[in-house]
Design a protein around this nucleic acid. Structure first.
Lengths: 219, 219, 219, 219
DNA sequence: GATGAATGAGGATTCATTCAT
DNA sequence: CATGAATGAATCCTCATTCAT
């Protein structure tokens, strides 16, 4: 029950002269190589120390080629984010049809999120960093988080109405807070490498969610 | 029940040519002016865009004077952090002797933290940013957080032993998680300006803490 | 009585790898499109800011195609000049056979020149600019001007011999000077948009010519 | 009787971050060295091919020092123009008090202008070039020319009123045209090196002025 | 100690020209 | 012939750091 706060999809920010979208096969190859190169360099050096030349070199291209497809670091970062999004959310798609026990839904969502985070730890660290550095991505992440929290808040409200959750807690604030808890812990364990096992993390977070909402125990 | 994760105290990082500690009255004045200038510029432009010249100018000093006292931006930032620490924690000092109800202790601590965060929002935003940018401050914040979480974990363990808290939850992970929740929410409300009132924030976070730990209700 | 100083005909400059002269119908079409594209872009952006890619794009061709026909910007500019020359001089062709009164000849020539300049103001501005930028076109324009001035000088000398013009003035310098006056005024009115009406311009320049040469009044 | 159209004095164009005006003696020296270096390089390579590094090098300074005082080539060019102005107009100041014969006034002015032009031919060529390249200087020159022409037009009108000049010619257009004639000829002789002697040039231009205005002969 | 100018390495960006398809 | 992407040399510009006064 946490935001996919990490993966901005829309273009973040204002445009300058839009660079081309490759028409030829070769163009597509180069553009992709650049994005992969960017990923490599970003993950290795961080956003700030990533230089255009290095990205190009990592892509096996000349530095000028970078500008065929992107205006600057921010733009290729946005492209990377977009590309990586599916990749990251993919196993999230495992169908949970038929699952109706709220506790189970929440637990599965948390686990999925944490697994995704673990798989993409370096990338998530990068997103975290860029959100602190770049206004556009900062905003984007907030918007994601908001959309997500509103969905969760709706769920909490329903549970309250059905008498299955603590009626005293404010749904929206709660939704934000519990998501924040999970995503921040994911950061601390998988990026900052807090020595906590995956299972302890999942278990504890799930229990905390359940307790916090005062969910009725599963039958 | 949250970390003072924000205020590194030891000098963060390795040494180069140590700059002077001012002896003369004039020296002290200049050094302080520089730190205040740094604060001004950091808060206005962010850590990355803060230029040494601007800091010096804001301090009414020549850019060369900067190097009389500091080696670089990182060093003056550390000095700023050190200076600001007391200022930030000040009203935290309100004595809570005699308070023994755990719920009350927790609620007071959360409220204090959130008030401090609100008062120093710009500075906290800055610390958050720098922790993402600078290895040394990143590490420092983790250490703070760890020390803090361990203290909280101890408290949780004691409550569990006294039968006052859910025995199922792992104390350390829980301590980390709940602190993370509070500090992250502080960021989102006071820095990102999520439209949530202060009272709603405090209330909800306190309830979530209490629920999460399954504290027995206050008598 | 002014130079067609604007339209270089010979190729201006040295040779490199000579590009092809199109044989196929398609080739002719592309080459012409490029020249028209060049005109468009030159007039819009000026010579300096005109980029090969833009010229090609304006021609509906790929940037590589440019080099099938031209080596560089200078070369296509020369081609443009050549092409445009006829276009510019066209109504100049109005026959003035039988006209023998020198004053009338001069007045007609001036008027024709000024009309041509007005019609092609953007192009003339461009030529003026390029002559200041490019050595070859600079020289070319001088040569044109010289040829033209010599012709005019001859005319002046004849008038002097026939007692119809001031014998005191040096024919060649005068020829240069009066031409310069007319062409520069054309620039100032039609390019720099000095607020002077066409008729005032023609009239005054004609009177100044007549006065300067001390032509006997028309009978 | 020609414009000092060549020497813009006000700052030409919009500003960015204004660079410093040197406070120290050393600063003044460097700034001047840069302007002299600019002059050297501009005269040698032309405005377009002048590179910042070369200007700095010619000034015996590092390329970064350039930016201490100027934002770009345009700005140092403006400074050069300003500096050079007095230098150029200096002997122009020769008092002509007591001179009242209009013919004499005109002849002296023309001669002064032509001498100035000859002395500063390389610089004047440069100004001519830049006026064709740079919008701001283009405009500036026009303004100068206009102010100048208006003064001359006034003089012509007075002469007409006193019956000393051809009443048929439009004063303003005439003023523009005759100035244009002189300045353009100066360019052609001293820059383009048309093989005309200084005396022939002065004499002829003076005669053409006198004729054009139909000045009464000097007594 | 303070000043403020000088330095120059470092990185971004453009665009003419080439060349494989 | 046409295409359009790739190349990389050439400049511009910033700013941390040094240093003479």
């Amino acid at each position: 029950m946490v935001p996919e706060e990490t993966a901005p999809g829309q273009t973040a920010g204002g445009e300058r002269q839009a660079r081309i979208t490759p028409r030829s096969k070769r163009g597509v190859r180069t553009r992709n190589a650049l994005i992969q190169g960017a990923r490599e360099v970003f993950e290795r050096d961080g956003y700030l120390d990533a230089r255009i030349v290095d990205i190009s070199k990592a892509a096996g291209a000349a530095s000028g080629s970078f500008y065929t497809y992107f205006n600057d670091k921010e733009e290729i970062f946005a492209a990377l984010v977009e590309l990586v999004q599916e990749e990251m959310l993919h196993p999230h798609l495992r169908e949970r049809t038929g699952v109706s026990d709220p506790r189970e839904v929440i637990e599965a969502a948390n686990r999925d999120y944490l697994e995704m985070y673990r798989r993409n730890a370096r990338l998530m660290a990068l997103f975290e960093q860029v959100a602190q550095i770049n206004e556009n991505f900062h905003r984007l992440r907030l918007e994601r988080g908001t959309a997500f929290a509103e969905r969760n808040a709706r769920m909490i409200r329903e549970l309250q109405e059905r008498g299955q959750a603590d009626p005293e807690i404010a749904p929206l604030v709660t939704a934000y807070a519990l998501s924040a808890m999970v995503s921040r812990m994911a950061y601390m364990v998988f990026v900052a490498e807090l020595p906590i096992t995956f299972d302890d993390l999942v278990d504890t977070l799930n229990k905390l969610w359940a307790n916090a909402l005062r969910l009725k125990p599963s039958p």
